Simulated scan of single mutants.
Amino acid sequence: MKINKLIKKIAVAAIITTLGTSLVACSGNSAANKSSETKSAGSTLDKDELVIGLDDTFVPMGFKNESGEIVGFDVDLANAVAKKLNKKVKFQSIDWSMKETELNNGNIDLIWNGYSITDERKGKVEFSKAYLNNTQVIVTLADSNVKTKADLAGKKVGAQNGSTAVDAVEAEANVLKSFDGGKLVTFDDNNAALMDLEAKRLDAIVVDEILARYYMKARGVEKYKVLTENFGSEQYGVGIRKGDTKFVEAFNKALGEVIADGTAGEISKKWFEQDILVK
């Protein structure tokens, strides 16, 4: 009988301990959920500093110069818009294929680096209004016999991983299927793809025209050829966390002011020798 009573006491104690642990866990989860809700409910507009994620090899939008300083058209434009918003700016290099994850996890506040507006991306982020036009062009070496998309059959074609160049090519399944191996050769950045093109390890690359023209000018336009056919036009916008409409509205107002007062036009002339902004 004494043994049975002891067993019962142990069992009751175990139940009480389990219930207590469960209540603490529930309380902890509730607090964590509330913390998460509070974090998600806040707007980027409430921050003093904007952390901008970028691929630091994407000339001329945002890249490291010879001194290791991050410079570029988007960098200058971001600083001008941040000034209108009365915010400080920090530029943070990221893996471009992880850009939306970095944004939605709160590691960065904006994706701003030649970020093309697409329907798929609209499901992951809020976009600012468009500020530049772009085209996904096909670049080969000047002496290449590739003149059309049809000529890419059996050829090695490269593009940056996680870019809209990949999306644009994959949208034309029959063309993609004709490539060597039936697929693109992808790279972490466009510079690596262009170097492989120059080394003739690739026959062509698909890349943002804005980057391609700037790169070719720096390396010698006579070395390259841009095909007449392309993989479609698009526009650049700034990626903002999903649901943060408060910041989208304030951001678009500030961007509009920078364009209207001529500041953005001067930045464009600095990098492109002309004002190419979407008005």
Rank of each mutant, 00 (worst) to 15 (best):
M1A: 12
I3F: 10
L6R: 08
V12C: 04
I15V: 15
T17E: 06
L19F: 01
L19I: 10
L19Y: 00
V24L: 10
A25C: 08
A25Y: 11
T44E: 03
V51M: 14
G62S: 12
S67E: 14
E69Y: 01
I70G: 01
A82T: 03
K83T: 03
K87D: 01
K87W: 05
F91W: 08
D95R: 09
W96P: 00
E100L: 15
N104F: 12
N105K: 14
N105S: 13
D109W: 07
I111Y: 07
W112H: 10
N113F: 03
I117L: 09
K122T: 08
K122I: 06
G123C: 04
G123H: 10
V137C: 11
T140H: 07
V146I: 15
A150E: 04
K155G: 01
Q160L: 09
Q160T: 11
T164A: 05
V166E: 11
V175C: 06
F179T: 12
D180I: 13
G182N: 14
F187K: 07
D188V: 15
D188P: 09
N191P: 06
A204Y: 05
I205D: 01
V207R: 10
V207F: 08
I210N: 06
I210H: 05
Y215Q: 08
A218E: 01
A218V: 05
K223C: 09
T228M: 13
T228Q: 15
E229R: 14
F231Q: 08
F231P: 01
E234V: 08
Q235P: 03
Y236F: 03
I240R: 13
K242N: 01
V248W: 12
F251P: 03
A254G: 05
E257A: 14
V258M: 03
S268T: 09
Q274C: 11
Q274E: 09
I276L: 15
K279L: 00
